[in-house]
Design a binder for these strands. Structure first.
Lengths: 349, 349
DNA sequence: TTCTCAAGCTGTAACGTTACAACTAGTCGA
DNA sequence: TCGACTAGTTGTAACGTTACAGCTTGAGAA
């Protein structure tokens, strides 16, 4: 509609969206004044400010994001970088809802930027930073020496990591206390009289593998027990792999009688493997697992569950990135969620 | 960095992002020519076009989204409007991955716009349309007379619905053939010798409730059977509600011996209810359910499963919105996924 | 030679916003 | 009376892009 002058109607008869210009016209002020008045700049007169804000509210003024972004570089976007191979258990949706919750009542939008683990994990990060398509990034599957974290720190780009690193540089993160989980899981098994403990851990590349393993190992040591190793098996292996490997292990003599499982999804496979070997939960063997979906509780009542709240994680991550964008120091933007309740619980009375 | 002239470095020493202007300078051409050359406009000379495109590729030119958006109104954004109360089973992540897949290699970004079912479902729709913050919208939980669809049609705003409507107006959608599911579920139960069938349906407000109910009813009629009604129970009820109500029903004499369940999440609760009443799957009773997560198959091997592919749904929805944005007619943008395999399958050999 | 036309290229303005430098009017002190 | 100052307001330019209306050049027709 170039050169059609200051019509306030578009072709289809919708009222044109109000701009600073139209508010300036209505109030008889200059565009600059209106802009400043709306953001409570100090050099605007009290009455003018109120008048402008009243009119703006009346006509439903919403700043044009493209205009702001072009002029200031501020995108009002947070980019969630996701691994699309992930997520057997569907915790991603909870994280998304959590983030949405965290950015509600702010001007931020959430953009989902996917990548495939099998391709280059740096690719989406570089894209966002180079094109400036977001003000901040949320990453997950954090590793101890994460190249994405390094890159983002080097470029001074605001971000928050789901999980910690081990690189000697502070950065915003939210994490679940997997060390505490590992410890309390073992303690619960010990309390049930189990002695031969195995851990089905997260993949070794991820930082929280170490946390969980430490909690697990510490508690074992305290109880004077040895770990029964499952080799390189991890919750990232396919469901069928986990089931078959566990079935094989469980059939041996001296097999574990207590399992700690790092994810709800893998717990299904783990239990299936145990049962394939003829073992019954709560009889020959016990399992403690983190649960993300509520469904696990219906799967086997004898499973010992520790809740991990991914909505909370999403909310915390949102707050952390926004803090980083606002320039807060990293040390203020680090949170760790402790496992709820203190004791794993089963749904068997 | 206003008024600093044509420096090609930013303060932090990063090379400035190339713009049309910088490419124009490098090639010695005008900005307009470069713009036209990059989009293969016909009035540009063959050699010039190639030269410009070469340089652009070399320097890694990416059009500035804010610039395009401000000038043309094109946002290159697709908005997925999600109900944050939803999703016990976590299928949302699969839809998101599917959409991501569908928009890969296009210039579209995916923005997640959440709302709460308990608040106004129109709110996010109006927001997107009024602020023009996306080129197209994907909605789910479609109802037969969906006010969102009406609004979007009236405003000529491109969208795709996950699920059909019944409003006598064609629009883009993707749907799962729930009628076929209902029918084949009953047939599978009949084949197992079950006679007293109950349906645990989607909430009555959603369109696919009717589809599933029709398939269910038709197959019942063909087999000369009557439905055992579960009253107003639906898969949107809480897990505990479903379990308790099913347990109560199952304890009656003449209780159903065959159940059709509309969602994987609810199946957990349904089975829990049956077992609480002392019934065993595959013995006194059989259950056919749609599965979204792969996990259901490990829950009870005797469950009869019909796979619904939500990644596919996401991909189709993405194609449908993009088609709508491109101005294709609605009739070309309607797809229905048929249940795979033809027969519900259990993991019991 | 002049005119017309097409091909190829260019400059200007505008989208909505904000940084910046300026301007106006009024107040106050000397 | 003047100058200095402050509070409040303003216009201009620019962010990167594209629509549009030109411009230039050379070829071909008359």
């Amino acid at each position: 509609m170039d050169g059609q002058g200051d019509s306030d109607e578009t072709r289809r008869g919708e009222p044109a969206r109000p701009t600073l210009k139209s508010i300036a016209f209505m109030t008889g002020l200059g565009v600059t004044t209106v802009s400043r008045a709306l953001k409570d700049a100090p050099e605007i007169g009290e009455e003018t400010r109120r008048r402008v804000q009243l009119v703006a509210r009346q006509v439903g003024y919403r700043p044009n994001r493209a205009g702001v972004r072009l002029r200031t570089g501020k995108t009002n976007v947070i980019s969630l970088v996701l691994d699309t191979e992930d997520d057997v258990t569907g915790f991603v949706s909870d994280i998304i809802y959590g983030i949405s919750d965290g950015i509600a009542d702010t001007s931020y939008h959430l953009v989902v930027t996917p990548y495939s683990r099998r391709k280059d994990p740096m690719e989406p990060i570089r894209y966002v930073v180079e094109t400036g398509s977001a003000d901040g990034i949320i990453i997950s599957r954090t590793t101890p020496n994460d190249p994405r974290v390094l890159y983002l720190l080097e470029h001074g780009f605001p971000f928050a990591a789901h999980g910690r690193t081990n690189m000697g540089q502070a950065h915003p993160f939210h994490d679940f206390d997997n060390e505490a989980f590992g410890r309390m899981a073992v303690e619960a098994l010990v309390a049930k009289g189990r002695r031969r403990m195995a851990l089905l851990p997260p993949p070794p590349a991820l930082t929280y593998h170490r946390h969980m393993r430490k909690g697990f190992a510490d508690a074992l040591a305290e109880a004077g027990l040895q770990e029964y190793s499952l080799g390189d098996l991890s919750i990232d292996d396919s469901i069928d792999t986990v089931r078959d490997r566990i079935a094989a292990v469980a059939a041996r003599s001296g097999a574990p009688d207590g399992y700690v499982c790092a994810s709800g999804g893998a717990a299904f496979a783990l239990v299936a493997g145990l049962e394939a070997a003829g073992l019954a939960l709560g009889r020959e063997v016990d399992v403690v697992t983190k649960q993300s979906s509520k469904l696990l509780r219906w799967f086997r009542p004898d499973l010992q569950l520790v809740e991990e709240d991914f909505r909370l994680a999403g909310r915390q991550l949102a707050l952390a990135v926004m803090g980083a964008i606002a320039g807060k120091s990293a040390s203020e933007l680090q949170t760790i969620a402790v496992p709820a309740g203190g004791k794993p619980s089963s749904s068997r009375p």
